[in-house]
Amino acid sequence: MLKLDGLTKTYAGQRGVNSISFEIAPGEVVGFVGPNGAGKTTTLRMIAGTLEPDQGTVQLMGHDVWSNRQTAQAVMGYLPEHAPLYDDMTPRSYLDFLLSARGVARKQRPDLLTQAAKRTEIEDVLDRRIEGLSKGYRRRVALAGALAHDPPVLILDEPSDGLDPNQKRVTQALIRELSPGRIILISTHQLDEVATLCSRLILIAEGQVRADQSPADFAAQDPEGRIEDVFYRLTAGPSPQASNPDEAHT
């Protein structure tokens, strides 16, 4: 179980994240959506243990992320925003570095590495320098790094950003394959991805949770079932029709 309770983070006097609370059970794939600057990445960083909350707690599989950080981080795979990588390494050496830093035994590492490379379809670039890889490959190498140690919890910040439609399909299939028994939290801007991939949607705006329901229930709030319109209404304005310039002038 992943449990956030009253999570709050303030930047320069302004609340980036304001008392966010939710729970995610194993087997759930949750889409964490919201406009830019809503507090998605800040929340994910607090869950991952790389940013300390001002208030509130994060419990991961019974471990408090901040009082028992290393134990919590050991059961988590985290794909940070922009998928940062070491350009001087190859995907193989990068994955091996992450596995060894996580204390995975030398004998187990090749199998886990091969499995992660196969799952993310980076086998053909395993021995090329990361520096020369395309954006899509880089994103997949970073994703492989998050799941290489086969963690029960995956925190993914925009996993399909920069991927072409085919690569997105592969990534979505992979997340579906990984989902049974795992907690998966995905931050994304792609609402179609949430609709097809996630069992639950959490919408955040101005640092607060605005909606927490299934994508189908979320879309049902619009008469035509358009998820983008519900997103717009809850995050940007009173109603999409009223704020549509073309329609406003008619």
Binding site: A48, T50, R69, A74, P80, R102
Partner: peptide, 14 residues
């Protein structure tokens, strides 16, 4: 600068 600090800080390492 490159953001890899985030990767390091997410490792279960002091």
């Amino acid at each position: 600068r490159t953001g890899t600090l985030e990767t390091l800080l997410a490792l279960p390492v002091p």
